[in-house]
Write a protein that binds this DNA or RNA. Structure first.
Lengths: 110, 110
DNA sequence: TGGTAGCGTAAGCCATCGCTTATCAAGCGG
DNA sequence: CCGCTTGATAAGCGATGGCTTACGCTACCA
């Protein structure tokens, strides 16, 4: 019961894997937006955008705030944090391993 | 022919979306490893690992170096860079937008 | 108070994807 | 030189996932 802790980065990765969903997410960069505005200019229908937003919300990447009949979504920076940590960790270790490998290989190489 | 520039981060995200594939990638943290060693203790067969490695390679996340009959794979730090840039950019803008939203909201709030 | 705007959900379809088994190619060692 | 090891690829299957249309619901507005 401990093979995979199912890290918080799991959902984030899965959520951001789909290009369309990432476009939805990116659209919120500049600030909060209601669904209709997000879907504007998107290559998919509004229900599709709603579904994407649901996934993003469950991944902790966005937050939702009802405003009258509108539903305003915003980016939740906290949701990006696990991804950041994972990447930084991998980055560090990868660079380290890379340097070590190069050094080792350079031993007998020309 | 310019709607989606198909950023370099696209393939990286797609590649790292699958948990198993991410585990394969993570196994290379400590240094280069031949396929059999990577598959060791994995919940999937060796061909599956091979397929994952192929995807990772095409995403520029790992490099391959034949060594006799073995095939040694290593992490390619360069492949992680686009992801890093995307994340940092999103992080900055998200924090900015978040701060702005809070400030704006704080105007009329209690 | 009827109408409409704005969203979420349901059902269903089609494509993609990950995995397995089976097969094939290549290099090393006896 | 033959066999074993190591990997990659092929084919096929089961599952997942994203999209669309259709529908239901809530809140504003005249």
């Amino acid at each position: 019961m401990s093979a995979r802790p199912a890290a918080a980065s799991d959902r984030a990765f899965a959520a951001l894997a789909d290009p369309t969903r990432r476009r939805v997410f990116e659209r919120l960069r500049a600030g909060p937006l209601p669904v209709a505005r997000i879907a504007e200019g998107m290559p998919v229908s509004r229900p599709a955008v709603s579904q994407h937003l649901k996934v993003l919300k469950e991944a902790g990447l966005v937050t939702e705030r009802p405003e009258g009949t509108r539903n305003v979504y915003s980016i939740d920076p906290k949701g990006l944090a696990p991804l950041r940590r994972w990447l930084n960790e991998m980055w560090d270790e990868a660079l380290d391993a890379f340097a070590r490998a190069v050094e080792e290989e350079g031993d007998g190489e020309e």
